[in-house]
Each structure stands twice: as C-alpha cells, then as structure tokens.
Design a protein around this nucleic acid. Structure first.
Length: 271
DNA sequence: CCCGGAACCTGAAGGC
DNA sequence: TGCCTTCAGGTTCCGG
C-alpha cells in the first residue's frame, strides 16, 4: 500500500514525464473519486494548465499548476499511477492526458483513492504532522508527540496529524527495529526508547525509498515495475515466519482493526 | 482534546 | 466446485 516511501518513489519516477508539460484533459471513469470541485469546474480549470512542480507531503502527491491551483492525489490503499501503456490497465478509474503524448492511468481496484483540485494546498497539508525525513523532525519533537498519549504506540504512529507518511507496514517495521511492543501506551516510552524509535522510523523509511517501495499487494511503480522493500521486511506481513534475531515466530494481532506484526520475544510487552 | 469504532470499497484467499 | 466469510488498510466521520 502506498505509504511515504511508495509515494516518494512515484513522485521521483513521474517527475521527468510531467514537469513542464501541459494537461490537455482528464478523463474520469468514476466520478466519486473527485473530491472537489464539481466535475464541470474541474475539467474547465485543469485543461491547458502546465505542471510546474511535483511534490509530496505525507502520502499526498501534489501537482502544482501554472494557474496557481494544485492537483492533489491520494492513492489510499490500492491506488497506483501507471505511465502510458497501449491498453488502459485493469481498474483504471481516471486518466490524465499530457501534451507530450503521455497518459497517466490512475488505477485503483478499491476506489478509495481521491483527486482534488484546490487553490490552496495548505488547507490539506496544514492538518499533517512533520515530515519524518526532514531535519526539523527531531528526537525532542517525537517525544513531544508521544507525551500524554495513552493510545497504543502503533495507533499513534499511524496518526497523520502527529507524523506524516507512516502507514501500517512501516509502523510495524520501525517498532521492530526499535524493539518496542506496538501495544505500549505512547506516553510510557523512556527517553532512550524514543531515541531508538526516532532513528528506526527514519532508517526504515530511507531504506524503503532506496528499494523503490514495497509491492506487497497492488503497488506498482509508474513504469509498471514492482518495488523491493517488502523483501527486506522483518515483521510486516511475516506472520509465522521466524524472527531474524531470535528465531521465534512472528505474530499478528489486531490493533485498531489493523493487522499488526511483531516479534513477541524481541518486542516484549505487558501481555 | 483524546480515544475507539464504523464506513467507504472490491478482490483475493481460506474454510467447509 | 461453489458459496460464504474474512482479510487487506488510509482516511474521515461520529459518538463517548
């Protein structure tokens, strides 16, 4: 599923194909994926506009247009953006047509993905917490975020308002790397554990970007290739496999309706 | 404000 | 073989 490293990879691999080019039109095959504005206004405002910049904030992909507006895409759980192919890929819900002949197919089996055209991206991004890979995301900042939170650490890491971009897979991987039980109340971490977790979050995300993301289910890179980050996973989606550190089986428990994978020996908790 | 659960969706996989 | 249930999980909304 697209989390920060996957969206970052899509951004990087899409950039040269889109920056400086003009959107000649957009085709929507499923209207409800358009959050705002109305379809009519959307078509009117986007045609003929040049893409000047492509950025990522959290899990959002942002196409800055020369009109001052921004096309904002969230892939949610099953979305992918696939570059020009002869045949539209299966589950294509929208197509962005560019003046260089490139078509970008928004494929999304589950129809959770969303597109918006906004005048002010800030309205979307201001609700997000800091970017975990930027220099201003410090140990002290993480400590602040965890303070007074009695929810399970795993749930807190998934809260985009606290830290932007971490999803289910990388939360599990970061917690394993830091050897912390996902059920621990967030406030209960020691200063040392927070330091380890801070390092682990950044390490896990950076490594995954180097591997071009994780293709555990429906994620593909724009060229159609898979990422390889999942082949380095220690716990995520590894239920029953043996822990690389202690050789005990990885377990899966639900936390907030999410599958959470961890090693009960390396990440001991109260229960 | 904080927390937890349901809803949104559909396809794949597993059980009987 | 075929039907039924469960699982997958990012975000938003709602109730306590």
């Amino acid at each position: 599923m697209p989390e920060l490293p996957e969206v970052e990879t899509i951004k990087n691999e899409l950039a040269t194909h889109v920056i400086g080019h003009i959107i000649t039109g957009v085709t929507l095959f499923w209207d409800r994926m358009l959050r705002q504005p109305s379809p009519k206004q959307f078509y009117h405002c986007i045609s003929g506009k040049k893409i000047t910049e492509l950025t990522r904030r959290g899990k959002y992909l942002i196409f800055r247009l020369d009109s001052g507006n921004s096309l904002v895409i969230h892939l949610k759980m099953s979305g992918s953006l696939i570059l020009d192919t002869d045949m539209p890929p299966e589950y294509t819900r929208a197509v962005i047509h560019l003046d260089n002949g490139v078509n970008i197919f928004f494929c999304d089996p589950r129809k959770f993905g969303r597109i918006s055209l906004v005048t002010d991206v800030g309205n979307i991004t201001e609700k997000l917490g800091p970017e975990p890979l930027e220099a201003n995301f410090t140990v002290e900042m993480l400590a602040e975020k965890l303070e007074k939170r009695k929810a399970p650490l795993k749930a807190v890491l998934l809260n985009q308002a606290l830290i932007a971009g971490i999803g289910n897979m990388y939360a599990d991987e970061a917690l394993f790397a830091a050897r912390i039980n996902p059920l621990r109340p967030a406030y209960s971490l020691s200063q040392d554990e927070i330091k380890h977790l801070h390092y682990a979050i950044r390490k896990v995300l950076k490594d995954a970007i180097k591997s071009k993301g994780a293709s555990v289910s429906t994620y593909f890179r724009p060229g159609g290739e898979m990422g390889s980050a999942h082949s380095h996973f220690k716990v995520a989606h590894q239920k029953g496999k043996l822990c690389s550190i202690c050789s005990n089986p990885i377990e899966r428990i639900p936390i907030r309706q999410r599958g959470s994978y961890y090693c009960p020996v390396c990440q001991p908790g109260k229960d």
